[in-house]
Computed example of a mutant assay.
Amino acid sequence: MPRASVSPPWGSDIADTITSLGDYFVTADGRQLITVMDAALDASARAGKPVRIV
């Protein structure tokens, strides 16, 4: 199937602020999920403790 004929299931109805897949995933308070996860993993590594997701 040619690439141009494939579209995401949500179509093109997304916010103008979303310019990459990283922008698409946000937390309930509006922060980028990948940035939050990166900070959590970094803090976990520095503290020598596992990340706990609840």
Rank of each mutant, 00 (worst) to 15 (best):
M1L: 00
M1G: 09
M1V: 04
M1F: 05
M1W: 08
P2V: 01
P2Q: 02
P2H: 06
R3S: 10
R3V: 04
R3G: 05
R3D: 14
R3H: 03
A4S: 12
A4L: 06
A4E: 13
S5D: 11
S5R: 11
S5E: 12
V6D: 00
V6S: 04
V6M: 11
S7N: 08
S7L: 11
S7Q: 13
P8M: 01
P8L: 09
P8S: 10
P9R: 11
P9W: 11
W10H: 13
W10G: 01
W10R: 03
G11D: 04
G11H: 09
G11T: 06
G11F: 03
G11S: 00
S12F: 07
S12K: 04
S12L: 06
S12A: 10
D13T: 09
I14C: 07
I14A: 04
I14H: 13
I14E: 12
A15E: 15
A15I: 03
A15Y: 02
D16P: 11
D16C: 03
D16N: 12
I18A: 02
I18F: 10
T19V: 07
T19M: 10
T19H: 11
S20M: 04
S20D: 06
G22F: 04
G22S: 02
G22A: 13
D23Y: 00
D23L: 02
D23R: 01
Y24D: 00
Y24H: 09
F25E: 05
F25P: 00
V26I: 05
V26G: 01
V26E: 10
V26S: 05
T27R: 07
T27G: 03
T27V: 09
A28S: 13
D29N: 15
D29H: 06
D29P: 08
D29T: 04
G30L: 05
G30N: 01
G30Y: 01
G30I: 01
G30F: 07
G30Q: 05
Q32W: 05
Q32R: 15
Q32E: 12
Q32K: 15
Q32G: 05
Q32V: 11
Q32F: 12
I34C: 07
I34L: 09
T35L: 03
V36R: 07
V36M: 03
V36F: 01
M37I: 15
M37F: 13
M37L: 15
D38R: 14
A39E: 14
A39V: 08
A39H: 08
A40M: 12
A40R: 02
L41N: 10
L41I: 10
L41V: 10
L41W: 13
D42S: 07
D42A: 14
S44V: 06
S44K: 02
A45S: 14
A45D: 15
A45P: 00
A45E: 15
R46G: 13
A47N: 12
G48L: 04
G48F: 06
G48V: 09
G48Y: 09
K49N: 07
P50Y: 05
P50Q: 04
P50F: 09
P50T: 02
P50R: 13
V51K: 09
V51Y: 01
R52W: 01
I53M: 08
I53A: 08
V54C: 02
V54Q: 14
V54H: 13
V54L: 14
